[in-house]
Design a protein around this nucleic acid. Structure first.
Lengths: 192, 192
DNA sequence: GTCTATAATAGGATAGAC
DNA sequence: GTCTATCCTATTATAGAC
């Protein structure tokens, strides 16, 4: 028999794209079928448990991609600034300069939230932990590093919402450009 | 005939709540009907053009609320810090300490985005303009004020996403607490 | 203004041929 | 593995009685 025309990963990438653009509820099987070029039955062959199975697979793949392309470089040895710059570059590509939404964000804001909340929250948390690493290496306290890392993810997600509202990724790209310097800025001590 | 048991505004508030929680696609007529206590036909009596009509009405009401409770106080005379504090207090209540999502955010991240994009973008823009006002009054340049105001909205939306993922409003409330001081912090000049 | 009933369609999922 | 055909349910929307 001939090999599949596209790998399972290719299929999942397409599913991810549709989910990012339409959300869980908006991504109908008809649309997923059309986008992947596979009939509904073929989709069920790959993902026997249906739509939830597809979304779980999307999250699996996303997790793999983040580990490899985001968390890994952040955790690696190297100058903190260079590691943050690498993340920024990766994110700019992944979100296509702010024109594509975040899978996690779209899943959180919709009726499927409860179903995938643990996974989503875990990924956000790992992300924050990974960003905190270069900040600690730059001699920040654990708590300051974590607070700033959380603020970074907050900004990323928020900028993607604004960019989506405008259909223009400029906000996102401007935010990204400032991010490394903001994260590494000298720590101000609270006035007593 | 007896007066309606609830005003049109009460009905719209309930619709808004469901949309915030489930998104456009997730908010089915069945659910909207149940939440409002009105039969589907009654909903169509109030909103002849169906679901889109309901969402438009939700956006109308949101716009009114924002004008009155957010934009108004921000534009009023008074100390910049006090005006920002007032906004923070209003937002904390409106988003129930981060436990309720943003209508605009949920509508942006879903299949209905295109349909309401102009309205949503307009509201975000008015919001940013309103926040910039007290910053300009605090002697910031127009461009710095606008950039910071945009960053504020970015943070608010992002924090709501994170809070939703965690089912815990702490991130949102912490962000809000810092917001006024961050917005009014002395302007750093770029190194040349 | 609210209800029950019903239409028409879209959605998720499965059966079985090839 | 992929397809066509089909099933069942949910969803949007309307008609018409009260």
């Amino acid at each position: 028999m001939p090999p599949a025309l596209q790998s399972r990963e290719d299929v999942i990438d397409t599913l991810m794209l549709v989910v990012r653009r339409r959300g869980y509820d908006g991504a109908s099987l008809a649309e997923l079928s059309k986008a992947t070029g596979l009939g509904k039955s073929s989709l069920y062959h790959y993902f026997p448990d249906g739509k939830d199975d597809m979304v779980r697979s999307v999250l699996d793949r996303l997790e793999g991609q983040m580990r490899e392309s985001v968390f890994g470089p952040l955790m690696a040895r190297g100058a903190p600034r260079a590691r943050l710059d690498a993340m920024v570059k990766t994110l700019d590509a992944f979100y296509r300069g702010g024109r594509e939404a975040c899978v996690l964000g779209t899943l959180v804001l919709g009726s499927a939230r409860g179903r995938f909340q643990k996974r989503i929250n875990g990924l956000f948390d790992d992300w924050i932990t990974a960003i905190a690493r270069p900040l600690e290496d730059a001699k920040m306290s654990r708590s300051v590093a974590r607070a700033r890392a959380e603020d970074a993810v907050t900004r990323i997600e928020g900028a993607l919402v604004l960019a989506g509202a405008r259909d223009d990724g400029d906000v996102f790209r401007r935010m990204l450009r400032q991010l490394p310097a903001d994260l590494l800025a000298p720590v101000k001590h609270a006035r007593r």
